[in-house]
Every structure is written in structure tokens, then in C-alpha cells.
Amino acid sequence: MTDGPKMKPELKMQAEVQSDVRKNPRRIAFILRRSSPYVKAQDDGRVMTYPTALARFIIALEVAFVLLVWISLLANAPLEGIADPMHTPNPAKAPWYFLGLQELLHYFPPMVAGVLVPGLVVGALIVIPYFNINIEGESLWARDRKRRLMIVGVALVLFCIFLLVFDVIVALVPTILIGGLMLWSARFSPESPKLFHRWLASKPLSFWIMSWFLVELTILTVVGTFFRGPGWSWVLPWQS
């Protein structure tokens, strides 16, 4: 985007008065097919990055800063006694964002909960955009409804049995919840009268998996943070 011919002063004045590109088109660059960013023709309005978008970012920065300063003035960061290899605190908890993982470590061997599961999660996240099925975003029940219903049903039952065998009730509940919703959504089609039903029916498989992951992550983290006491036993947060 280099400027084209050298501008004369009067031209510059005009640019200041009328700067709407669509009214006064000026060629400022050739966009070649090979090097152009992939944008579909869109008819929506545009604003300048400087100063409009930048101002928005600065407002976001200020909001974050003000909130965090208030929190920091009101609450002190935790600091326990000096590290002591001779005494393990009970319960020994990681920071909240690792407590979902720690909750899993309570059920499965470290090889599974500490290496296999996080590895699979990261792998799954990375490959999301490289699967056509995710990109098309076609509803799970759009085609092959009966066959898919059977596959999903069997997979869900097997997974629930697996969780039951390892006694992972905490992970079982969200699985049944999301899985049930998923199977229920097969009853609806894009022609269903209710908006919520149509919305459910339009969701692709990746939506269901990601939502399951989100609910699972939230519940495991909440349980690990608030419902686990000495010896990683089940406690209610208002009891301790």
C-alpha cells in the first residue's frame, strides 16, 4: 500500500474533506490474486485502525487495569509457610487452573491423567481447523441419521461404562448431560417450530465435543477447587 502519484497540495485538501473511499475511489495498490488476503466481498462498513480501533483497545486495557488494581488492593496474594520437604500440606492443591487435572489424577494413573489426556486434548485442539467436517459445520444429524444415532449412542454408553468402572462420577454427570442433549437434538430438524430446537438441530459434531470439553473442564475445576478436602476426600465448601 504505497502512495501513488505525488499529491499536490489542493488534492491533499480534498482528501481531508472527502475521505470516504467508496465515494472517492483512489487507486493506492494493486492487489494480486496470489498475495491478497482471502476476503470475500463484504458490504459492511469499515473504520480506521488509528484512532478508532486503537482507542477501543486502550479502553479495554484500562478496564482490565482498573479492575485488577482494585482486586489487588482488596485481596492479598496467597503466601504459605516456607517450603518444607518434610511436611506435605493436607490437602496439597495446585492453582485452580490445574485442579481439573489434579482431580483426574485422583482417578487415573499419572501416565493416563498427566500425560495421555493432556496430550490428547492439545492434539485435538490443534487439528480442529484441519478437518473438513469442522469447517463445513454441517449438522450432525443432517445425513445418515439412523446410522449416526447408533454410533453416537454406542460410543456414549461405552464411554459411560468406562467412567463407571473407574468410579469417575464427577466426569460421568456432564457426559450424560451433554450426551443426552446431543441424542435429544436428533429429534429435531431445521423445520422445527421452536427456535431452541432448530438451534440444537443445527449443531455439528465438533460443537458437541467442544461443549462436552468445556463443561467437563468447568465441573472438574470447580470440584477440585471447592469440594476437595484433606486426603482429597469429598467435602462441601461450607463445611471445612
Binding site: P89, P91, A92, Q102, L105, P230, G231, W232
Partner: peptide, 14 residues
């Protein structure tokens, strides 16, 4: 060591 349970217990993951 938990004498009341006659068991050795780990505080981290139970």
C-alpha cells in the same frame, strides 16, 4: 502414618 486407621495415607490424591 495414621494410627487411628492403621494405614499410611497420602494427602495429595488420597
Amino acid at each position: 502414618w495414621k494410627p487411628e486407621l492403621d494405614l499410611i495415607a497420602c494427602p495429595c490424591h488420597g
